[in-house]
Design a binder for these strands. Sequence first.
DNA 1: GTCTATACACCGATAGAC
DNA 2: GTCTATCGGTGTATAGAC
Lengths: 187, 187
Amino acid sequence: MAERRTATRREILDAAWQVAREQGLALVTLREVAALVGMRAPSLYTHFDSKNAIYDAMFEDAWSECQRYLLAADVRAPRTARSALRRYALLFFDFCVSDLARFQLMNQRIIPGFEPSPQAYEPAVTTLELLRDRLARWGIERQQDIDLYVAIIGGLIDAQLANDPGGRRWRRLVPRAMDMLAQDLGL
Amino acid sequence: MAERRTATRREILDAAWQVAREQGLALVTLREVAALVGMRAPSLYTHFDSKNAIYDAMFEDAWSECQRYLLAADVRAPRTARSALRRYALLFFDFCVSDLARFQLMNQRIIPGFEPSPQAYEPAVTTLELLRDRLARWGIERQQDIDLYVAIIGGLIDAQLANDPGGRRWRRLVPRAMDMLAQDLGL
DNA sequence: GTCTATACACCGATAGAC
DNA sequence: GTCTATCGGTGTATAGAC
């Protein structure tokens, strides 16, 4: 039964997320994940090739969730370029800041030997293309402009999580940073 | 002999840096560090209380080195606020990008249980105060302005190391980002 | 004090019985 | 598909040699 197999994989992944959120992403152990789903550690190898394969599926999870989150918030489109930049930035900021373990997996290289597979990377690419499309609507299409946008938001998220987790010290700066960028782009 | 002890500690730290640069910061093992200095792993405990104590001393190393680097580059002061922002940013950018392992230790939380001790953190505080003094000369004193400055540079460094290591794709954007900030600050 | 040998508990991973 | 047993690896505690 393929369904059963998929469901078990899902259970394992949920357990891994739980451990990651409680103990930290790098402190996930197969024994603890297995215990949460009522198994022994070696049994996980029936469903995943390795521990990194679990991280791989979690990486895919995270970016898929991000994509869904950004799409769901697209119901009412912004009216000006400036409000668009602000809105997209705040959406991504809030999504990332709400789950440290997920952010570390998505955007930092916190697991020593882990590189996401092409399949797991696909939702990340799609999400970036979604952003690219949205920015293009406001005339932002040059690669360097997108690079700058991405870097600034990433820096604000990093600073928030590293220096004021749970607070709003850097979140407050997001609109200002986006207005700076809009000004620079002549928008 | 206190000198001998200090010298041995220095040898161990240098070996640890070597392994960190070659294998990655998180892949440093006590056995490999010990082998490099002609010891067995448990012998390191004569000189350091734990593996994290070695990371702690390395953290102090990194920020002390950063402080010296920034001070040494202070010989000729910039003439305008705009060139000052650019110069300080590029200095820090180049220092960070030149050594990934060092950057990860200084600015990311890549080691699972590691938190720098107050003593190890002291050079980091001093370095930030150095930046604060320099920015204050140009009238930049508000906490939120400094926060924004730090976040933007950090984001650019992160993006450079993560997406184009060894390249210049985000380095090229540093002057532009600093001009944006200067414009925003009315400088 | 410095270093070693030994040992322990934990980790990811594998082999083979059921 | 899941188990037990086990392997080689890790950080680290301890006892003892010099």
